[in-house]
């Protein structure tokens, strides 16, 4: 694999057996997911909004490095699922049952500080949401709230380079971020997430508000980030899932509108030879 030219402290803390192993080759079937080399393990997860069950009994392991796509018809709870992984679901008044293990520890355990957890998991939203501040301050935000002092320039340049935005903005770092185009704003939001050195990046339909050219740029970016990061991307666009992901999880929903996981496996396998009839129907466009 390509090793980043820049020193990556986080790499040194990774379990040795997962370092340098390309995610493409460590795909595990859902039923044999008990290994500890997974970044995330979702176990019997139910997500609720008030009385409404939005997700039912989700079991999903996410291994180190690479991209996992979450696909499914609209309203099946894809976004809710990723929001459960950094405890943003509860910000909107939602409730969760079951366990989500992040690096082997249950993030819903009573002693876990959700704020601290979120600073280790990056998130990119549907609509680009840069703060109405300068480009520099946007990327610096996560560092500042975590109490980093001194010169932040190195980290900011590195983050913007990784987000493939540096060349476009290096001369106007003090300009307001809202002046950027939609695609640039979304890459800025990715840079903002990268700056805090997250161990996992969640992307909730990151291209749904962008034009095709900007979408292409983001997809290329996701591919290049996949070599260093674990990424989970929600998308309603199956071609996009096929283009960017190594693994795919397919969700659909019951008649009571509760989402559940149908199938999870290598993207190639899901798209060419799905083991479940419902997946096949969805992928071939017979449903959804």
């Amino acid at each position: 694999m390509v090793i980043s030219q820049l020193p990556n402290l986080k790499e040194m803390f990774k379990p040795s057996h997962s370092r340098g192993v390309n995610a493409r080759h460590v795909v595990t079937e859902p039923e044999q997911s008990a290994g500890t080399d997974n970044v995330i393990e979702v176990e019997h997860l139910n997500a609720l909004y008030g009385d409404h069950l939005a997700l039912r009994d989700i079991n999903l392991p996410i291994s180190h490095k690479g991209v996992t796509a979450v696909i499914g018809p609209s309203g099946c709870g894809k976004s809710t699922l990723v929001r459960c992984l950094n405890r943003m679901h509860e910000m909107a008044g939602g409730r969760v049952e079951g366990r989500v293990l992040f690096e082997g520890e249950d993030i819903y355990h009573r002693g876990v500080d959700a704020v601290e957890l979120r600073s280790r998991i990056g998130m990119v939203f549907q609509k680009p949401n840069p703060f109405p501040k300068s480009i520099f301050e946007n990327v610096a935000f996560g560092l500042r709230i975590n109490g980093r002092r001194g010169s932040l320039m190195d980290t900011i340049e590195r983050s913007l380079r990784r987000a493939a935005l540096w060349d476009e903005v290096k001369d106007r770092l003090n300009k307001n971020a809202l002046a950027l185009s939609g695609g640039q704003q979304q890459r800025l939001c990715i840079a903002r997430a990268l700056a805090v050195e997250p161990e996992l990046i969640l992307m909730d339909e990151p291209c749904s508000a962008l034009d095709p050219m900007a979408t292409l740029a983001i997809e290329e970016l996701i591919r290049s980030l996949a070599q260093e990061y674990t990424i989970i991307i929600v998308t309603h666009n199956m071609q996009q899932a096929a283009r960017v992901s190594d693994e795919t999880a397919f969700l659909t929903m019951d008649t009571d509108r509760a989402g559940y996981l149908v199938e999870h496996g290598q993207t190639r396998q899901i798209f060419t030879n799905p083991s479940d009839k419902r997946t096949e129907d969805y992928i071939t466009g017979r449903f959804g």
Binding site: M12, F13, G104, H109, E116, R120, G147, E199
Partner: peptide
């Protein structure tokens, strides 16, 4: 070396 547990880890001064 295993990953840093965030539960049980002493909250930093900043936090």
């Amino acid at each position: 070396m295993t990953s840093i547990p965030f539960r049980g880890r002493k909250a930093s001064r900043n936090r």
